[in-house]
């Protein structure tokens, strides 16, 4: 076996994975997006740009998604960071494992069941009833944008907590001592050392949550009462209800392209943020 043959053999498994899991499905979506809808739904082979020309019909869904995904990511980040910080920096090591497991435990149950639980918590007999008991009346939670946000933060919290936790846990604690030794008060140490050094974890967490949020449909459908329409919901309707596979594929492919573009821009920004601090301090 020549060296070249060996090299090919080594990349073969990764290549096969890439082909089967990524290239093939994407190709199917791409091909379908140039087709037409059959009279009884489904897909009829064709070559037309009609589906793409029809995209403005889902403009609102794209708009909503492009607003929700960054906002949901930000909300998850704001909740996850203090939690990860508490776990990584402030928690006694003997409790760490237990608390980390508690963060994952919800993952053992389907998101569907957990979202249903929130329907009851946020519903009229849940939190609003409790609030009424202490005199705050007329609070409506379920089927509001707030409910969707709560559901998203709840559902995606572990994905955000873990990368940040790892970044903070790996942070050399002597750097914090050094900062303190050099005269920085705890909050300034956090701003000047802890925060910038946890940026890689923050970046990873945000990326994971953002990508998944772009395709989210379950939480808006269950907790948003179907009144807020995202690309994910549009896709579910197109594939499972009106069975317009061709248009559905065009919407899906457009979503993928938007996602790739956003993620690329995001990665560039993060790379610049991490390398470009020669002149600009984070403070």
């Amino acid at each position: 076996m020549t060296r070249q043959e060996r090299n090919w053999l080594l990349v073969a498994p990764a290549g096969a994975w890439f082909l089967v899991m990524l290239v093939l499905p994407l190709s199917v979506v791409l091909v379908f997006s140039f087709g037409e809808r059959g009279p009884a739904g489904g897909y009829v082979p064709a070559f037309t740009l009609e589906q793409y020309a029809n995209l403005p019909a889902r403009l609102t869904a794209f708009k909503n998604t492009l607003i929700l995904a960054p906002l949901g990511t930000l909300a998850a980040l704001l909740i996850a960071y203090p939690l990860a910080y508490q776990l990584a920096v402030r928690t006694d090591p003997k409790w760490k494992t237990i608390l980390l497991v508690l963060v994952i435990v919800p993952f053992w149950t389907s998101i569907l069941i957990r979202s249903y639980a929130w329907i009851f918590i946020l519903g009229g007999r849940g939190l609003p009833a409790l609030l009424e008991a202490i005199g705050i009346e007329g609070v409506r939670l379920i089927y509001t944008p707030l409910a969707v946000t709560i559901g998203i933060v709840y559902g995606y919290l572990p994905l955000m907590v873990f990368p940040i936790y790892v970044a903070l846990d790996r942070l050399d604690k002597r750097l914090l001592e050094a900062s303190s030794d050099l005269g920085a008060r705890p909050f300034r140490t956090f701003l000047q050392v802890t925060l910038p050094l946890s940026i890689p974890g923050v970046a990873t967490g945000c990326l994971l949550v953002f990508i998944l949020l772009m395709g989210e449909f379950l939480i808006p459908a269950l907790l948003g009462g179907g009144k807020v329409f995202f690309v994910g919901n549009a896709l579910v309707d197109l594939f499972l209800q009106s069975r317009n596979w061709a248009f559905g594929s065009a919407v899906a492919f457009t979503l993928i392209v938007i996602m790739l573009v956003t993620v690329t821009i995001y990665m560039r920004l993060i790379a610049r943020l991490r390398l470009g601090r020669d002149d600009a301090q984070i403070m």
Binding site: R37, R58, T60, G226, F229, N233, A234, S242
Partner: peptide, 12 residues
Amino acid sequence: PNRAELLARFKS
């Protein structure tokens, strides 16, 4: 298809 599109417009 028109009814499906109508529902999509209504929902969004």
